[in-house]
Simulated scan of single mutants.
Amino acid sequence: MSELLATLPPLARAAVPAHSTGFDTALVLWEEDLPGGCHWSGVLRRGSTLRLVDVEGRANVSALFHNHERPVERYNMPDTLKAQHTAHLAAGCVCYSDMGRVLCSIAEDTCGWHDPLCGALDAATMQSKYGSADYQTHRNAMHRAGREGLLVELSKWGLGRGDMATPLNLFSKAVADGDGRLHFEAGHRRAGQHVDLRFEMDVLVALSAAPHPLDPSPRYAPGPVKLVAWHSGTAGADDPCRLRCPENDRGFVNTERYFLR
């Protein structure tokens, strides 16, 4: 492992925690740095895994997933939660499409809780909380809203507002009190935490590293994220994500049949 790590760029080496398991660095496809507040999109092929690393313990990543071959099929938050009998996602969970197929699965996770409920920060809320900071004045330090960042990325692939769904907020924890009000737990995040998304389909992924909409910080200071992708293969018969519940096994079967050509 140490010999393989020595061959990687510094960013990729830093993004592979020493305690990580099941990661063959010889299979790394690419690595990239996503600054706080910025956005990114790309296609992750079936059988690849994307690791996201919270570099400083301040990250929130709003993520959208679409079937790259047929983008009308997209991540469905209600079905994802209902099928797995949960209100948050962590290792062993999957992200379902609105066609009952598994877009991606959480193969490894050191964070333990990812918020699927609260959506992305919009421009009006951002300006109300943090004030205005446009590009003309602040250049790359401008304030960027999560929703608008996701829309920019979707537009690069011919998609628009009608293709937006409720995104998954990676690294963020929002819990309900006795009256049903959601509260953001800032202490949940730690520097170096990572989550591995293994893609079971060819998926168009859109990411925004803007703040979580419920983040109580009065300062616009979203944290950076490291991205590393590698060849991993898909879920096997004994994979924990498949075995989590009968619904997940059926979801993987639906996905595998989709790729029978």
Rank of each mutant, 00 (worst) to 15 (best):
S62A: 15
S62T: 12
A63R: 12
A63Y: 10
A63L: 15
L64P: 11
L64N: 10
L64W: 10
L64G: 08
L64V: 10
F65V: 12
F65A: 14
F65S: 13
F65K: 13
H66E: 11
H66L: 14
H66P: 04
H66A: 11
N67V: 00
N67I: 00
N67R: 11
N67P: 00
H68N: 07
H68A: 15
H68Q: 12
H68D: 07
H68G: 02
E69V: 07
E69I: 05
R70T: 14
R70H: 12
P71V: 11
V72K: 11
R74L: 08
R74Q: 13
R74C: 04
Y75K: 05
N76H: 13
N76K: 04
N76T: 08
N76M: 05
N76L: 08
M77Y: 03
M77R: 14
M77D: 08
P78N: 04
P78L: 07
D79Y: 10
L81F: 01
L81V: 01
L81A: 00
L81M: 05
K82E: 06
K82A: 12
K82L: 05
K82N: 03
K82R: 09
A83D: 04
A83V: 03
A83L: 09
Q84S: 01
Q84M: 04
H85R: 07
H85I: 03
H85S: 04
T86L: 03
T86E: 00
A87E: 03
A87K: 00
H88I: 00
H88Y: 15
H88N: 01
H88S: 03
H88F: 14
H88M: 03
A90Q: 06
A91C: 13
A91K: 15
A91Q: 15
G92H: 09
C93W: 01
C93R: 01
C93D: 05
C93F: 14
C93H: 14
V94G: 11
V94M: 10
